[in-house]
Computed example of a mutant assay.
Amino acid sequence: MASKHRALDLDGPPVTDLTRRIMQNVGDRDTTPELAVRRALHRAGLRFVLHDRRLPGRPDIVLPRWKTAIFVHGCFWHRHPGCPYATMPKTRSQFWSEKFERNVARDAANRSELEALGWRVVEVWECDIKKRRFEEPLLSMFRRQPRSRSLTPT
């Protein structure tokens, strides 16, 4: 008889098959927060490219004419500072702590690379989307800044 517990972690209880399936189904594209940001941009007449692999970090939304890369971050996964959604799981704390540190370091590296290439980087947080606080600050960026003449990354 196969065990229900496959991965053994000394820092907490084993991971069950159910937990593994749930975690494997966490999406990285077309999430509800990402769709909300895309709808807002589209309503405002802004056109964009999704998940451009040519750019560091493959931003969720890219506005080439504005030379802007938008990352739609989940507060839990990307550790939004001071956010109540950025909780720490009670089990396997060492695993989660290391995972979150890698996520934050990768986000910072992607931001630095994009900025070095002359791109403006915008992070839209899940909690701001849930509370509907993202739309005006995001769209106001595109009313103030003139368009870049380059349609491709430099």
Rank of each mutant, 00 (worst) to 15 (best):
1 M>R: 13
2 A>R: 14
2 A>S: 10
2 A>I: 07
3 S>E: 07
3 S>L: 10
4 K>H: 15
7 A>F: 14
10 L>H: 13
10 L>D: 13
10 L>W: 12
11 D>V: 06
15 V>Q: 14
15 V>Y: 12
18 L>C: 04
19 T>A: 15
20 R>C: 08
23 M>D: 06
23 M>E: 07
23 M>F: 05
24 Q>F: 02
25 N>L: 05
26 V>Y: 00
27 G>K: 15
28 D>E: 00
29 R>F: 00
30 D>R: 05
31 T>M: 02
31 T>C: 06
32 T>M: 08
32 T>N: 05
33 P>F: 08
33 P>I: 08
36 A>V: 01
37 V>M: 05
37 V>N: 10
38 R>C: 02
38 R>E: 05
39 R>P: 00
40 A>M: 03
41 L>Q: 01
41 L>G: 02
42 H>L: 01
43 R>E: 15
43 R>N: 13
44 A>M: 04
45 G>S: 01
46 L>C: 02
46 L>S: 00
47 R>G: 05
50 L>C: 03
50 L>K: 13
50 L>T: 09
51 H>E: 02
51 H>F: 01
52 D>R: 14
53 R>T: 13
54 R>P: 05
55 L>A: 06
56 P>N: 13
57 G>R: 08
58 R>W: 00
59 P>G: 07
59 P>M: 01
63 L>A: 10
67 K>D: 00
68 T>G: 11
68 T>R: 03
68 T>H: 05
68 T>Y: 02
69 A>F: 01
69 A>E: 01
69 A>H: 01
71 F>C: 03
73 H>L: 04
74 G>M: 09
74 G>Y: 07
75 C>G: 07
76 F>L: 06
76 F>C: 11
76 F>H: 07
76 F>A: 09
77 W>C: 11
78 H>D: 09
84 P>M: 08
84 P>G: 03
88 M>I: 09
88 M>H: 11
89 P>D: 06
89 P>L: 10
89 P>F: 06
90 K>W: 03
91 T>W: 08
91 T>I: 10
93 S>D: 05
94 Q>P: 00
94 Q>R: 15
95 F>K: 11
95 F>M: 12
98 E>H: 09
99 K>C: 14
100 F>D: 11
103 N>A: 11
104 V>W: 10
105 A>M: 03
105 A>P: 02
109 A>L: 15
111 R>Y: 00
111 R>M: 03
113 E>S: 14
114 L>K: 13
114 L>G: 14
115 E>R: 12
116 A>E: 12
117 L>Y: 04
118 G>V: 08
120 R>P: 02
120 R>E: 15
121 V>G: 04
125 W>Q: 09
126 E>G: 10
126 E>Q: 14
129 I>P: 09
130 K>T: 04
131 K>C: 08
131 K>A: 15
131 K>F: 05
132 R>E: 15
132 R>G: 11
133 R>T: 04
133 R>S: 13
134 F>P: 01
135 E>K: 06
136 E>L: 13
136 E>S: 10
136 E>R: 14
140 S>I: 00
140 S>D: 14
141 M>H: 03
142 F>G: 09
144 R>I: 02
144 R>L: 07
145 Q>M: 12
146 P>G: 10
146 P>V: 06
146 P>M: 10
146 P>C: 05
147 R>Y: 01
149 R>A: 12
151 L>Y: 04
152 T>F: 12
152 T>K: 12
152 T>N: 09
152 T>C: 10
154 T>R: 13
